[in-house]
């Protein structure tokens, strides 16, 4: 912490430049080792740019063309051209296309077919791909994706909810599968999924709210589980859930803003997992979405359920599926 300069403002221009530069770093080995995350990277970058009022910093035509090239015959999308389709990337693709208002560029029926085929009809769970990994992350991916496509009718929603509820724990949180420990990112997936299908009444908001607000540490940052280190990405996973539950004001706004701002790279742009570390586009987005939920100036509001700019969710006519509570 001491080695990094204390930042007191959001470095908007630097972050825009940083995101624009990501696809030029081809002489870094890292660029090639993360190829399987390319489509996710586009979603993280594009959403961040939109929140920064700079969605045009990436050329729409190029973005859409790239996303289209990641779709497979079975309807699913892969992390990069030629890689295998997976539910994770299918959601990222749909999110990007919704931001760009370009769903007509792909075969939506095929996407719906792919997502629906991932549901286990007996348990209601979703598998990430044909190899069968089950995780509540995939429940979120499926429900969010179908909701954005207005095709929730394609799956058994009550079964999906049943499975998510099997993953609920003694602390009011949720794990990745029945029996698994609560984890903030997993909790976002489960609570977000429940919000999408109007089932928030199943969440013990006071108990879970308590668990979530205890994630804030003395340095202002949030961790994802008790007794773990703080990380900027939990500014999203924890805050979004608190926001959905109408309890965003249960943490200290100023301290968290300070923490996220200090994790900015004041030279190269971007936000890191914690102050002094290397910035990356994943933490850049989740730092910004966190700040947006905290109503930091100069940022567009983000929807805590869909992790998309609010104006995008409004444009496609989806209702707000979370509790309102002004930051006091």
């Amino acid at each position: 912490m001491d080695t990094s300069e204390k930042q007191t403002r959001l470095l908007v221009d630097l972050h825009v430049k940083y995101i624009q530069s990501l696809d030029t770093k081809k002489d870094d080995l890292e660029y090639w080792l993360t190829e399987h995350l390319r489509l996710s990277g586009v979603y993280w970058g594009l959403t961040a740019l939109d929140l920064l009022n700079n969605v045009d910093a990436l050329k729409k035509e190029d973005v859409v063309k790239y996303v289209v090239s990641c779709q497979h015959d079975n309807g699913g999308f892969s992390g990069h051209i030629g890689h295998d389709p997976h539910l994770l990337y299918t959601l990222y693709a749909v999110q990007i296309l919704v931001i760009e208002d370009a769903l007509d560029a792909v075969n939506v029926d095929k996407i719906v077919e792919y997502v629906a085929s991932r549901q286990d009809r007996d348990t209601g769970a979703f598998t990430g791909d044909e190899w069968g990994e089950i995780d509540t992350r995939f429940s979120y991916c499926a429900l969010s994706c179908l909701s954005l496509l207005k095709r929730l009718d394609a799956v058994n929603v009550s079964k999906a909810v049943e499975f998510i509820m099997l993953c609920k724990n003694f602390d009011g949180g949720f794990g990745n599968s029945p029996g698994a420990e609560s984890h903030a990112a997993q909790i976002f997936c489960c609570v977000g999924a429940l919000a999408i299908v109007n089932s928030l009444h199943l969440v013990d908001a006071d108990l879970l709210g308590w668990w979530l607000c205890e994630r804030q540490l003395k340095n202002g940052g949030l961790n994802g589980r008790p007794e773990k280190l703080e990380d900027v990405c939990y500014s999203w996973w924890v805050l979004s859930t608190l926001s959905i539950l109408g309890r965003l004001h249960w943490i200290n706004r100023e301290k968290l803003i300070e923490f996220v701002l200090t994790a900015q790279d004041s030279e190269g742009g971007g936000i890191a997992d914690r102050p002094g570390d290397m910035a990356d586009v994943f933490h850049t987005l989740f730092g910004l979405t966190g700040l947006s939920l905290l109503e930091y100036p100069d940022l567009k509001p983000v929807d805590p359920v869909y992790c998309l700019p609010k104006h995008v969710v409004q444009r496609i006519g989806l209702a707000e599926r979370y509790h309102h509570k002004e930051f006091q």
């Binding site: 081809k26 002489d27 090639w32």
Partner: peptide, 28 residues
């Protein structure tokens, strides 16, 4: 992506790293 310290290498060190990485990138 997690917990990697931000370093400010000199231009020369950076050049050296890129050269070394270029071979690795090609192989990979």
């Amino acid at each position: 992506m997690h917990a990697r310290k931000r370093a400010k290498p000199s231009a020369e060190a950076e050049k050296h790293r890129k050269e070394k990485e270029a071979t690795k990138i090609k192989e990979y």
